[in-house]
C-alpha cells in the first residue's frame, strides 16, 4: 500500500486519466471540466440577460456531481494519501524559483501565492483573480480546457483541439518566459 502514499509516476497517472475519460464515455457522458463554469453561471441567474447562459443546465447537472467528487478527491488526496509535500521538481526548476521570490522549500502549492497568511495583499489577489479571469474567458472562447481539448479532443483526433492545445502552450510559454519577470 506504500505506493499509494508516494507521488504517482506519470505513466500510471496518464493511464488513469484516460481511463476516467473512457468510463465517462461508457456512461454516455463526456470528460470536460470547464463547462461546469458555464453551468454555475446559469444557476446564478446569468441566463436572464445573456442567451449564452440560457440553456437547460439540468441536462448538464451530472457534471456538477463529478466536480463535487473532484473536490472530495482533493480533500482525500491531501489529508489521507499524502503529507502535502512539495513535488520533487527538477533541480533546474528549483534553482529558478528564487528569482520569482518563491521558496525552494515549499508545500504542494507555493505558500507565497496560496497560503491564507500571504493572500491578503493586493498583488496576490490580483494574480489569482486575473489568472482565474483568463482561464474562465479563454476556456469558453476555445470551447474547452485541458480535459476537454488536450485529453478528450486529442484522443478523438480532432484538429480544433490540436489548435487549442497549441494555443494553451503558446500562452503558457509567453506567461512563464516573458511575463513572469514582470509580474513576480
Amino acid at each position: 500500500m506504500d505506493f499509494l502514499f508516494k507521488p504517482w509516476p506519470w505513466y500510471i497517472s496518464g493511464f488513469l486519466i484516460a481511463l476516467t475519460m473512457f468510463v465517462l464515455l461508457l456512461l454516455g457522458k463526456k470528460f470536460g471540466m470547464s463547462s461546469n463554469l458555464r453551468t454555475m453561471c446559469t444557476i446564478c441567474g446569468a441566463g436572464k440577460k445573456t442567451s449564452f447562459f440560457n440553456f437547460d443546465w439540468k441536462a448538464d447537472s451530472w457534471n456538477l456531481i463529478v466536480v463535487l467528487g473532484a473536490v472530495i478527491g482533493g480533500y482525500i488526496g491531501a489529508h489521507f494519501l499524502s503529507d502535502g509535500s512539495m513535488p520533487d521538481i527538477s533541480e533546474a526548476t528549483r534553482a529558478s524559483l528564487d528569482s520569482l521570490g518563491i521558496s525552494e522549500n515549499n508545500a504542494y502549492l507555493p505558500q507565497e501565492l496560496f497560503s491564507l497568511d500571504n493572500v491578503m495583499n493586493l498583488k496576490t489577489i490580483a494574480i489569482l483573480l486575473g489568472g482565474g479571469l483568463l482561464i474562465g474567458f479563454g476556456t469558453r472562447y476555445a470551447g474547452g480546457c485541458t480535459s476537454g481539448h488536450a485529453i478528450s479532443g486529442l484522443s478523438n483526433l480532432q484538429l480544433p483541439s490540436l489548435i487549442a492545445v497549441i494555443g494553451f502552450f503558446i500562452g503558457g510559454l509567453i506567461m512563464v518566459h516573458l511575463l513572469y519577470p514582470l509580474i513576480f
Binding site: L133, I135, T139, A142, V165, I170, G171, I174, L179
Partner: peptide, 17 residues
C-alpha cells in the same frame, strides 16, 4: 481562446479541474 487560457493556466498553475 487557447492562448488566453494558457496565460491563465501558467499564471496560477491550475486548469479548471
Amino acid at each position: 481562446g487557447g492562448i488566453i487560457f494558457g496565460l491563465g493556466w501558467a499564471l496560477v498553475g491550475a486548469c479548471p479541474g
